Amino acid sequence: DEDSERELEKLRKNNASKEEIKEVLKRLGFSEDEAKKLAEKAG
């Protein structure tokens, strides 16, 4: 959803580590696997 998109955008701009991105995604309700895949894509 839009909030998670914004959250990811912010992380990308701040050069967050894949680990940080994954944690945020998991907080947003993604499964471990989904979060890992998305973090890879974002990283």
Rank of each mutant, 00 (worst) to 15 (best):
A42T: 10
L28S: 01
K13A: 10
E23Q: 08
K37R: 13
K18S: 10
E32S: 03
S4Y: 15
D33G: 05
L38W: 13
N14K: 13
S4I: 15
E20N: 03
S31W: 01
L25E: 00
G29D: 00
K18Q: 12
K37N: 09
R27Y: 03
S31I: 02
K10I: 10
D33A: 10
S17M: 06
E34W: 06
S31R: 03
E19R: 04
K41M: 13
R12M: 10
A42F: 15
A39F: 07
K41A: 13
K41W: 15
S17N: 05
D3M: 12
L28H: 02
E34G: 03
S17G: 05
S4N: 09
A35W: 07
E7P: 01
E5R: 14
L28R: 05
A35H: 02
R6F: 09
R27W: 05
E5Q: 12
A16G: 04
E7S: 08
E20K: 09
A16D: 02
R12F: 13
L25R: 01
D3N: 10
L38I: 12
K22Y: 15
G43M: 13
D1F: 14
F30I: 04
S17L: 07
L11D: 01
S31Q: 04
S31F: 02
K13S: 09
E19H: 07
A16C: 14
L38P: 02
D1R: 14
E19G: 03
D3E: 12
A16I: 06
K36L: 14
G29V: 00
R12Q: 06
R27F: 03
E32D: 10
K13C: 14
E2D: 11
K26E: 06
E9W: 02
L38F: 09
G29Y: 00
L11M: 05
L25Q: 00
A16Q: 03
E32A: 04
E40T: 06
K13L: 09
E23P: 00
A16Y: 08
E20L: 08
G43P: 10
L11Y: 04
K37A: 12
R27G: 07
E9K: 11
V24W: 14
D33T: 06
R27I: 04
R6Q: 07
D1N: 12
L8G: 01
L25V: 00
S17W: 05
R27P: 00
D33S: 08
R27H: 05
E32H: 03
S4A: 15
N15K: 10
E40F: 07
E19I: 04
K37S: 11
E20A: 09
I21M: 07
V24M: 14
